[in-house]
């Protein structure tokens, strides 16, 4: 897929909860063309180096000292939604990015406001591949790994309307979920963002402050034990911390289900030049593949996970 560097305009940048923000960007004509056939799991990189810091009073206290550090490299982000809008100038693409404020780059992003311009590099990487005969999609997300799975959920709703989709989202506590938690119609707490697209969601928190108390993969395992899924038409899609992905790979193996995982690595260029985002895989000749170019989505069976 063709990649490029282009400008985006900020439409909105809202705090959702505690450290989570929702950034909506509208791409220029070049970016809109490049993103016209983007798929869930792909990502982009933003150049936030020239954004000024927000007023000190708005910076979370634990980040005030480190926030002053200069930002040099671009930062990779997945998207939680991509929509195409027809306006006077043709079709424009808008993307929604959910980000967590956790360092100098994301602290700067808090200061973005409507009409601001930002340089985007993308679309990058390979997204989830969707088997045409897919009948059950099991989405497992951990914390900030959730955005691309929300995108995948809405994408599947449109492209495979008959497909059963169920999502599991885990975090340390209720406060760490990058979504809005509310009481569902039938079965306890649900995530509003998934509810809006009519995808059932199960919450798991380490401390039990919302939903299942424990790991999201254990929550998904319980569900799998109580539901029948044909391995020929079921797939697990996951994104989250490496330890969670490792557990998800084990879960998929236990139920003989195909599983695609979206990995994360520190990366600079995003286009396969710097070789920094190596992922160790079992079957490649060189043993390392690149998260940015060969991934970020990998077949869970092939990945050699880093030690916990």
């Amino acid at each position: 897929m063709q990649k490029g560097v282009f400008q985006a305009e900020v439409l909105s940048n809202q705090q959702i909860r505690r450290c989570y923000y929702r950034l909506n960007l509208q791409f220029d004509s070049k970016g809109s063309l490049l993103f016209s056939s983007v798929v869930p799991g792909q990502f982009l990189e933003l150049d936030v180096s020239s954004i000024s810091l927000p007023p000190a009073s708005l910076i979370p206290e634990h980040l005030r000292e480190t926030a002053a550090k200069q930002v040099f490299l671009r930062r990779p982000f997945s998207f939680s939604d991509v929509i195409k809008v027809n306006d006077a100038e043709g079709t424009v693409v808008r993307v929604e990015i959910l980000y967590c404020v956790l360092g100098p780059a994301t602290v700067r992003m808090m200061a973005l406001k409507s009409k601001d311009k930002i340089s985007v590099l993308g679309p990058l990487g390979n997204g989830f591949s969707i088997p045409q005969n897919l009948q059950t999609a099991i989405l497992i997300a951990g914390g900030m790994g959730s955005p691309p799975l929300l995108h995948l959920a809405s994408y599947l709703k449109h492209s495979l309307p008959q497909c059963r989709i169920v999502s599991f989202v885990g975090a340390k506590s209720c406060e760490d979920l990058p979504f809005t938690v509310r009481i569902g119609n039938f079965k306890g707490l649900v995530l509003e963002e998934f509810e809006l697209i009519q995808v059932p969601s199960f919450i798991a928190t380490d401390d039990g402050s919302a939903g299942y108390r424990g790991f999201v993969t254990d929550c998904a395992r319980r569900w799998l034990q109580n539901h029948t899924c044909d391995p020929a038409s079921t797939a697990i899609f996951a994104c989250g911390p490496e330890a969670m992905l490792k557990s998800t790979a084990r879960l998929a193996g236990d139920f003989s289900l195909p599983c695609q995982i979206s990995m994360e690595r520190m990366m600079a260029c995003g286009i396969g030049l710097c070789q920094s985002c190596a992922v160790e895989v079992k079957n490649a000749e060189t043993r390392y593949q690149l998260c940015c170019k060969d991934g970020p989505v990998f077949d869970a069976r092939n990945v050699i996970f880093q030690a916990d």
Partner: peptide
């Protein structure tokens, strides 16, 4: 001979630059 290179993290950002330790990964 081919080299798989160093384990990750292979890069880190610094003030006005970055460190890399790729380890001559090549085919």
């Amino acid at each position: 001979e081919s080299r798989k290179g160093n384990p990750t993290p292979r890069i880190v950002e610094t003030c006005g630059g970055m460190l890399n330790a790729i380890g001559l990964a090549n085919m």
